[in-house]
């Protein structure tokens, strides 16, 4: 059953209000457009157009805004696979211990300032880039050129500068669900 905001679903005696459902005067109404789903004692609505929400375990696209010592700060930009902007921007923390399973001394060898990274939310604001598809997906050289993949390193085609990163398998490719990035 497809409902629109304000449609009465059931009364409070029958079910508990789940996501997309609100209660008023003992009645349950839909608050978003979508399909009604009954889950045991709860009713919720599978929204037709979902507003992105972050949970532990989600993969996000972010930008490195600071690298200091053993941590890097990453601003969340999008949830992977969703073009829609986040309701609120967060800054997450990536610790060196969450970069690879191997030993890594310097955070600078894994991510650089301004890099676009794909990272997994481990817990709240703690991030991890362990895993093949996680890591840097786009990076720029100090001279301003895009770095290109060169073996397991990144190389600047203009100035020849070579940098080391924790590179994602998706490096250089659009990884936001293939719908095309906002910046074309």
């Amino acid at each position: 059953m497809f409902v629109l905001p304000g449609d009465r679903i059931r009364c409070i005696e029958e079910f508990e209000a789940g996501e997309g459902v609100y209660e008023e005067n003992g009645e349950l109404y839909a608050s978003v457009a979508g399909k009604v789903v009954f889950e045991g004692k709860r009713v919720k609505i599978e929204p037709a157009n979902k507003i992105p929400e972050l949970r532990n375990g989600d993969v996000i696209i972010g930008r490195v805004i600071d690298v200091r010592g053993s941590i890097a700060l990453i601003r969340f930009e999008r949830k992977v696979g969703q073009e829609r902007a986040l309701a609120k921007s967060f800054v997450g923390v990536l610790h060196v211990s969450n970069v690879t399973d191997e030993f890594l001394k310097n955070m600078e060898d894994a991510v650089g300032f301004g890099d676009v990274v794909k990272a997994k939310i481990v817990e709240d604001l703690k991030l991890s880039i362990k895993g093949e598809d996680l890591g840097v997906v786009k990076a720029k050289c100090k001279c301003g050129n895009d770095l290109v993949l060169d073996g397991d390193k990144l190389k600047c085609p203009k100035c020849g500068n070579v940098e080391s990163r924790k590179i994602s398998a998706d490096y250089g490719r659009c990884c936001n669900g293939g719908k095309g990035s906002r910046n074309g």
């Binding site: 629109l4 905001p5 304000g6 997309g20 609100y22 008023e24 109404y29 608050s31 978003v32 457009a33 979508g34 929204p47 037709a48 157009n49 979902k50 507003i51």
Partner: peptide, 11 residues
């Protein structure tokens, strides 16, 4: 607003 999936009490 409904198309955007914004929760509302009605239309």
């Amino acid at each position: 607003l409904v198309d955007a999936g914004i929760p509302m009490k009605g239309i």
